[in-house]
Amino acid sequence: MDRSYLAKRLLHALIIAWGVMTASFFLMRIGPHSPADKYLATLGAGHNVSQVTAAIESRYGVDRPLYEQYFNYINSLLHGDWGWSFSTSMPVSDLIKIHWAYSFQLIFLSSILAIILGISLGIFTAARKNTKADHIATFFSFAGISIPNFWLGMMLILIFSVKLGWFKTYYDTGLPMFSLSNLYALILPVITLATGMVAGYGRFVRSSMLENMNKDFVRTARAKGLPESVVLRKHVFRNALLPVVTIIMLDMSGIIFGGAYITEFIFGIPGLGWMSLKAVFSDDYSVVMAVTLIGAFVTLFFNLVADIAYTYLDPRIRYE
């Protein structure tokens, strides 16, 4: 049963991946951009426009029938050909190879911090339900969820860089990624990206803990004479963790991708979001589309991981 469930999830993921690529193809077709327009814009006057257009359109296959274009598009995506970046004059796939690691570093550090702090906050507040500490933490969680992260980033810059002068350095791609200077420059971005996550995970863990605290098996555990700390850590937390893992996995993609995009923009970290936004303003269509597609594929990947993780964490599904 286990294996067929996995197969089903994989098949589902493949269908969605196909749907995502198809959707991007049609978005591109109904959009106002033709590859020829892009190229002509960089070309300037003095050329035979219609000839050049025809040449480019044949080069890109835009003059072919729609189904053939569609097939070629999917085919090239699958072969790692994500198009040509006009603004940087290199294949988009090379551009991605240069920039992805910076996004990964920012997201990785923020997520680790957010998971540790968020889960601790959730356990702390659940164990002190309805006390003053809980109320204060709940208030700050709401604030953390509600604060726009781009504004938070700006306020951190205003207070700690402009007014206090503590953070004057910016992320420097000339230095190693994990150099002290770059890690120091990542402190404010990581706080910016992690704040909302800490608050969100904290609240989610709290409600999941509270839900499980009322379960009969927790009373059974207490009746066995287990110390309260073991009851909370083992019986409540391990069960509360199940939905938390799913939420964190699903969150990884959507909110983090959006958040990282903006955080990179504010702090000038040369990740995929920064690259995409630069492409938006230099009207480099393929790059913008590629980053959106990557976002979708990463989401899909984490959804799949969440599904699989769940089956391994919950014996009820594992042994169905």
Binding site: H12, G19, V20, G258, Y261, S276, L277, A296, T299
Partner: peptide
Amino acid sequence: MRFTDIMITFPFLLLLILIVYMF
């Protein structure tokens, strides 16, 4: 529902940026 799944897979803000950029 598969259509919904596909829509959900696109990160919200990235899709918005793409659409606003294009149109």
